[in-house]
Simulated scan of single mutants.
Amino acid sequence: MTTFIGTFGIGHLRHRCYQPIQADTAELAAQHMADRHGYDWSTIYPLEEYKSLQDLGHFKGHQPLPTLGVETAFTDIVQQFFDRRYSEIMTSRSPFISKQERLQILQQDICSAYREKPAERPHALLRDIELQLC
């Protein structure tokens, strides 16, 4: 398996995130991106190329999404990732996308990440999001 990184363009809802993907080929990585994000993404890079672009100053401050293409062990780290995103949404402003839209994206990401294991979803966080969306 090779690690690829999927990116999102400036106009996309997840433009400040990147998507790690484990796949045998770039075509399979693109299929994982299409399965997860539809066509709301920009480019797939091999990990080393993505790191080179980061070294040149691209993708500054972008946050990783949970890895696609592998069975992810949902640990405290994954929970902390979603908690951190929630806190950032609640305490920051974006000129590109409303707080409500960012909360809806987070809600979708949580449900999608835990699709195979709904009993392990961070229900308290989902309740907090639902309260904010009311």
Rank of each mutant, 00 (worst) to 15 (best):
residue 56 L to C: 05
residue 123 H to W: 11
residue 31 Q to W: 01
residue 34 A to Y: 08
residue 16 R to A: 13
residue 108 Q to Y: 12
residue 34 A to L: 13
residue 28 L to Y: 03
residue 85 R to K: 03
residue 39 Y to H: 11
residue 68 L to V: 09
residue 125 L to K: 11
residue 94 S to T: 11
residue 12 H to R: 07
residue 17 C to R: 09
residue 126 L to N: 07
residue 27 E to N: 02
residue 85 R to D: 06
residue 92 S to F: 07
residue 69 G to D: 09
residue 35 D to G: 04
residue 80 Q to V: 08
residue 88 E to N: 14
residue 115 R to E: 10
residue 11 G to K: 09
residue 15 H to E: 06
residue 98 S to E: 12
residue 75 T to F: 01
residue 3 T to S: 08
residue 106 L to Y: 07
residue 131 L to T: 13
residue 125 L to N: 08
residue 99 K to N: 00
residue 58 H to T: 06
residue 16 R to M: 10
residue 81 F to P: 00
residue 78 V to F: 00
residue 20 P to G: 08
residue 42 S to P: 00
residue 19 Q to Y: 02
residue 13 L to D: 07
residue 116 E to L: 04
residue 93 R to C: 01
residue 60 K to V: 12
residue 5 I to N: 00
residue 61 G to N: 05
residue 59 F to D: 00
residue 17 C to V: 06
residue 91 T to F: 05
residue 123 H to T: 15
residue 21 I to Q: 01
residue 115 R to W: 07
residue 87 S to A: 15
residue 121 R to D: 00
residue 29 A to N: 02
residue 41 W to A: 02
residue 126 L to Y: 08
residue 111 C to T: 12
residue 55 D to C: 04
residue 76 D to H: 13
residue 72 T to H: 01
residue 122 P to W: 04
residue 63 Q to L: 14
residue 66 P to K: 15
residue 115 R to P: 00
residue 66 P to D: 09
residue 32 H to I: 07
residue 32 H to N: 12
residue 99 K to M: 12
residue 101 E to C: 09
residue 126 L to W: 06
residue 28 L to E: 11
residue 62 H to T: 13
residue 109 D to A: 09
residue 51 K to G: 01
residue 15 H to C: 10
residue 114 Y to I: 05
residue 7 T to S: 10
residue 75 T to L: 04
residue 32 H to R: 08
residue 49 E to M: 06
residue 94 S to Q: 06
residue 112 S to V: 04
residue 59 F to E: 00
residue 91 T to P: 00
residue 36 R to Y: 08
residue 64 P to M: 07
residue 119 A to N: 10
residue 36 R to V: 04
residue 31 Q to F: 04
residue 86 Y to D: 02
residue 14 R to L: 15
residue 44 I to S: 00
residue 82 F to Q: 02
residue 9 G to Q: 04
residue 101 E to I: 14
residue 100 Q to K: 15
residue 30 A to N: 08
residue 120 E to S: 10
residue 9 G to H: 07
residue 127 R to L: 13
residue 68 L to W: 06
residue 64 P to N: 10
residue 79 Q to F: 12
residue 1 M to G: 11
residue 7 T to D: 07
residue 38 G to Y: 12
residue 34 A to Q: 15
residue 30 A to G: 08
residue 12 H to W: 02
residue 84 R to G: 06
residue 14 R to K: 14
residue 53 L to C: 03
residue 45 Y to W: 09
residue 21 I to N: 02
residue 117 K to N: 10
residue 114 Y to S: 01
residue 45 Y to K: 02
residue 24 D to S: 10
residue 105 I to L: 15
residue 118 P to K: 09
residue 124 A to N: 11
residue 79 Q to M: 05
residue 2 T to I: 10
residue 66 P to H: 04
residue 51 K to Y: 05
